[in-house]
């Protein structure tokens, strides 16, 4: 998570208007879902990988490791699609060609779709999405909540980490029963600290005139129409290639 966040804030396309990234990525996603997966899937996967690694300058290793988690899920679940259960005499497991086809299609489609989303998460920090979220009509309260949660995740992740390190230093995780106990204590103290933190944050915000909404300046980014046009043309070519090949 830290790695994704780091790259989202520092990649080459960080300062691009979020729409310039969102529209092509969503279009690729739609193509992936609409066209025959074995043809369009590899093309979309290649396209998003190229954009992430060469365009946005995110290391191949990071990009692959982000895809590794969903890939592992697929690996665990998909093989069962290729196997069918029959009850002719008694019951038996069968390996069917149609099942294999289905498993392959599902994997490629899922992976290609995930690659579109991982392109977005790796190139655009959460904070950049807020103007868009507001634009599409999500209430201000919800958007503020998303941003606060985003900010506080890092505060509490650090507390949890240092807390765990301090417990480890006093041998809190040296045996299974101690580990369970330590983890319980840590969780409890984190809840307590979250409440205190919330109270103090309220005082801090009140000192700055907080009166119910968390309004801040939004980054001003010009939408580059030529860039968007180029990107969408490329997406169109991918779509055509997937359709004709």
């Amino acid at each position: 998570m830290q790695a994704i966040d780091h790259h989202a804030w520092t990649n080459h396309w960080r300062d691009r208007h979020p729409l310039e990234k969102l529209l092509p990525a969503l279009s690729l996603l739609v193509l992936t879902l609409a066209l025959p997966p074995l043809r369009i899937g590899p093309l979309v996967l290649a396209g998003t990988m190229l954009a992430t690694v060469y365009g946005a300058g995110i290391p191949l290793k990071t990009t692959l490791s982000v895809l590794a988690a969903p890939a592992a899920f697929l690996l665990a679940g998909v093989p069962f699609l290729a196997i069918s259960l029959r009850f002719n005499d008694g019951f038996s497991l069968h390996f069917s060609p149609e099942g294999l086809q289905l498993a392959l299609e599902t994997s490629v489609r899922a992976l290609a779709a995930v690659s579109c989303l991982s392109f977005l998460t790796l190139t655009t920090p959460l904070a950049d999405w807020t103007p868009l979220l507001r634009r599409v009509g999500i209430p201000a309260g919800i958007v503020e909540l998303i941003l606060l949660v985003y900010r506080l995740i890092f505060v509490f992740a650090e507390r949890a980490l240092t807390g765990r390190q301090a417990q480890t230093a006093r041998l809190g995780y040296s045996r299974l029963d101690r580990s369970v106990r330590s983890l319980g204590l840590l969780t409890g103290s984190l809840f307590q600290r979250s409440l205190e933190q919330a109270r103090r944050l309220e005082i801090g915000l009140a000192a700055r005139g907080y009166s119910g909404d968390l309004r801040v300046l939004q980054p001003e980014r010009a939408l580059s129409w030529p860039w968007l046009l180029w990107a969408m043309t490329l997406v169109g070519l991918v779509g055509l290639a997937g359709y004709w090949i």
Binding site: P125, L126, A127, L147, L148, Y150, R151, Q197, R200, L201, I203, G204, L205, A207, R208, L214, V216, L217, Q218, P219
Partner: peptide, 10 residues
Amino acid sequence: DQLFAATVGQ
């Protein structure tokens, strides 16, 4: 206790 927004400028 005071910083809540995603970037410093914000």
